[in-house]
C-alpha cells in the first residue's frame, strides 16, 4: 500500500466541515432559545442555550424512530428484490423492448409525488392498506425501484461477458449465474441502491402524511409535525427532532461504510 499523507486527511476534514456546516447550524438552532432565534448577528454557538427542544423530543419522539427504521429497511429489501434482476436483464440479457422499459422507468420517476400519493390513496382505500406500515413500504419503494433498476443496469453493464459465459460453460443456469456471480460482483451497486432506498424512505414525508397519518405506527417525519401548529411552529423542537432522528441513521451509515471499506480492502471481491 502506498504511503497515506496526512495532508489528504486534513483537506478531507476541512471539506467535510464545510459540507456539514448547515447540519451544525441545525444543531445550533435546536439548542437556541426562541427569543434568540432571530438575533442579529446570530450566535455562532448556542450562548445561553437550552435543552428544552430535546427534553420535549426525547419524551415524545422515540417510538417514531423504530417505525422509520422498519420502513427504511423494508423499502431496501423490496427495492433490491425487484430492481437487481431487472437491472441485470437490461444490462446483460438484452430483452427486446428493453429500451422502452428504460424509458418508462424514467417517465415513472417524473410523475409528481403528490400524484403518486393520490393514486396510492385511491388504491389503498379499496384494499384497506391505509395506515399500515406495509402500505407505506410499498409506496416508498416506488421512489427507489426505478432508480435501482437504472443504477443496477449501469453497474452491471460493466461485468465482462466472459465471466458470464464461463459460468454458462460450467453448466450454471441463469438463476445460479445471477445469484453466485452477478450479485456478488455487483456489490457496489447493491450498496448504492440500498443506501438511497433507505435514505429516501427515511426522509419521506408526503407518502407518510397521505397514507399513514392515522396509523398507530408512524415514521419520524410525521413526528416533526407535532411541533408545527396551525399558527405557530416550535423551531427548536423541530430541529431537535431532526438531530435525534439523524443520529441512529448516521451511526448506521458509518457502520455500513466501514463494513464496505473492510470488504474492499480485504480484496474478497473484485469487480
Amino acid at each position: 500500500m502506498k504511503h497515506r499523507p496526512a495532508w489528504l486527511t486534513a483537506i478531507g476534514v476541512g471539506v467535510t466541515a464545510v459540507m456539514l456546516f448547515p447540519v451544525y447550524w441545525m444543531v445550533n438552532v435546536s439548542l437556541t432559545q426562541t427569543s434568540n432565534m432571530r438575533k442579529s448577528p446570530p450566535n455562532l454557538i448556542p450562548v445561553d442555550g437550552t435543552l428544552d427542544g430535546y427534553t420535549v423530543v426525547l419524551r415524545q419522539q422515540l417510538p417514531y424512530l423504530g417505525t422509520s427504521l422498519l420502513v427504511g429497511l423494508g423499502t431496501v429489501a423490496l427495492t433490491l428484490v425487484l430492481a437487481a434482476p431487472a437491472g441485470y436483464s437490461l444490462a446483460k440479457l438484452r430483452p427486446r423492448g428493453g429500451g422502452v422499459v428504460n424509458l418508462l422507468l424514467l417517465v415513472a420517476q417524473m410523475i409528481p409525488a403528490i400524484v403518486m400519493a393520490m393514486g396510492f390513496y385511491a388504491i389503498y382505500i379499496k384494499l384497506g392498506l391505509l395506515d399500515s406500515v406495509w402500505g407505506l413500504i410499498l409506496a416508498d419503494s416506488t421512489i427507489a425501484v426505478p432508480f435501482g433498476v437504472l443504477i443496477f443496469s449501469a453497474f452491471m453493464s460493466r461485468i465482462p461477458d466472459e465471466l458470464l459465459q464461463a459460468a454458462r460453460i460450467d453448466g450454471a443456469g441463469s438463476l445460479r449465474t445471477f445469484g453466485s456471480i452477478v450479485l456478488p460482483v455487483s456489490r457496489n451497486g447493491i450498496i448504492t441502491v440500498s443506501l438511497f432506498a433507505f435514505l429516501w424512505a427515511w426522509s419521506d414525508f408526503l407518502f407518510a402524511n397521505t397514507l399513514d397519518n392515522g396509523g398507530s405506527l408512524q415514521p419520524i417525519t410525521l413526528g416533526i409535525y407535532a411541533y408545527i401548529g396551525n399558527n405557530n411552529q416550535q423551531w427548536n423542537a423541530i430541529m431537535a427532532t431532526a438531530v435525534v432522528a439523524s443520529v441512529p441513521a448516521a451511526v448506521l451509515l458509518v457502520l455500513a461504510q466501514r463494513y464496505v471499506a473492510a470488504g474492499v480492502t480485504a480484496g474478497a471481491v473484485k469487480d
Binding site: 497515506r4 478531507g12 476534514v13 447540519v23 458509518v254 466501514r258
Partner: peptide, 18 residues
C-alpha cells in the same frame, strides 16, 4: 487516506434530514 471512510459517510448526513 486515513478517516476517508468516516468522512465519506458523514457526507451523507444531509440526506438523513427531512
Amino acid at each position: 487516506f486515513r478517516l476517508s471512510g468516516l468522512l465519506r459517510a458523514l457526507f451523507l448526513v444531509p440526506w438523513l434530514l427531512p
